[in-house]
């Protein structure tokens, strides 16, 4: 495997008394499509939230492109990162949320150009042109002037995907992005993700309950329980012929 783009090294995370990740190790290769499955409370969302710096690890180090994410080197020692370092390393990562979290006071295109203009320093005209391309890619060219309240859940989530992609990240995180959608809207969002996977050189980490999609889309599936990786491998193996009995039990429960 080439140099990992993301590395979790001995990472642990507690919420009060509850340990959600313990001595967690994981390497993710550039351009890899990784699906993360597991029961609720298993730590899979925490994995993404740590990587987006929405949570701080209690122990261990996460590296992105070889650089520590929540820490920085100072006099040969790892210390807590300052805002400047955090913003620099964080710029490689972008995230799509379960509940979209679009900015309700901005139009679809306003949501997509906010970051490129004010974070990437792009000219407005260029940001608008790229945002139009991205909205077109997720099938929403005609909705660019709509506010989130005027869009369906599936449309909102596709705007959120365009917004995350507009930041030109190396790593995109998808946190149960179809879980809040009505069943008939799931397909359009998964199609947008498929398209990105096909057309972009980008590492994708997806926490998902869509087992069929995980099997077809991901290069690797990891099953997490109790803050540890219980089983991992190609989707066809982990999801169709799981070796670990806890994976088997989980899949029986999910697939019925």
């Amino acid at each position: 495997m080439s140099e990992p783009i993301v590395r979790f090294e001995n990472v642990s995370k507690r919420f009060g008394e509850t340990v959600v990740m313990r001595d967690f190790d994981l390497d993710i290769a550039p351009n890899e499509k990784l699906a993360v499955i597991g029961p609720s409370g298993s730590g899979k969302s925490t994995l993404l939230r740590l990587l987006m710096t929405l949570e701080q690890p209690d122990g261990g180090v996460i590296y992105v492109k070889g650089e520590p994410l929540h820490h920085m080197w100072k006099n040969g020692r790892l210390v807590s990162a300052d805002q400047k370092h955090l913003r620099k390393v964080r710029s490689h990562i972008s995230m799509v949320f379960q509940h979209f979290h679009l900015f309700p006071h901005m139009t679809a295109i306003g949501n997509v150009i906010e970051g490129p203009i004010h974070v990437l320093g792009m000219k407005r005209a260029e940001a608008v042109a790229r945002a139009e391309e991205l909205l077109d890619m997720v099938g929403l060219a005609d909705k660019k002037g709509s506010h989130p309240s005027q869009l369906s859940g599936g449309q909102q989530q596709r705007v959120a995907i365009a917004r995350a992609l507009a930041m030109q990240p190396d790593v995109m995180l998808f946190d149960e992005v179809t879980s809040a959608l009505d069943p008939e809207l799931v397909g359009e969002v998964l199609n947008a993700i498929r398209k990105i996977g096909r057309e972009q050189d980008i590492t994708m980490i997806l926490v998902t309950h869509e087992m069929g999609f995980a099997k077809e889309f991901a290069d690797r599936v990891i099953f997490i329980e109790g803050g540890r990786i219980v089983e991992q491998g190609p989707g066809a193996q982990v999801l169709s012929e799981p070796r670990n009995e806890r994976t088997q039990a989980f899949l029986r429960a999910v697939l019925g």
Partner: peptide
């Protein structure tokens, strides 16, 4: 959180 994910300054 969305603002953090877009790397917006405070």
């Amino acid at each position: 959180e969305a603002s953090v994910a877009l790397n917006l300054s405070t």
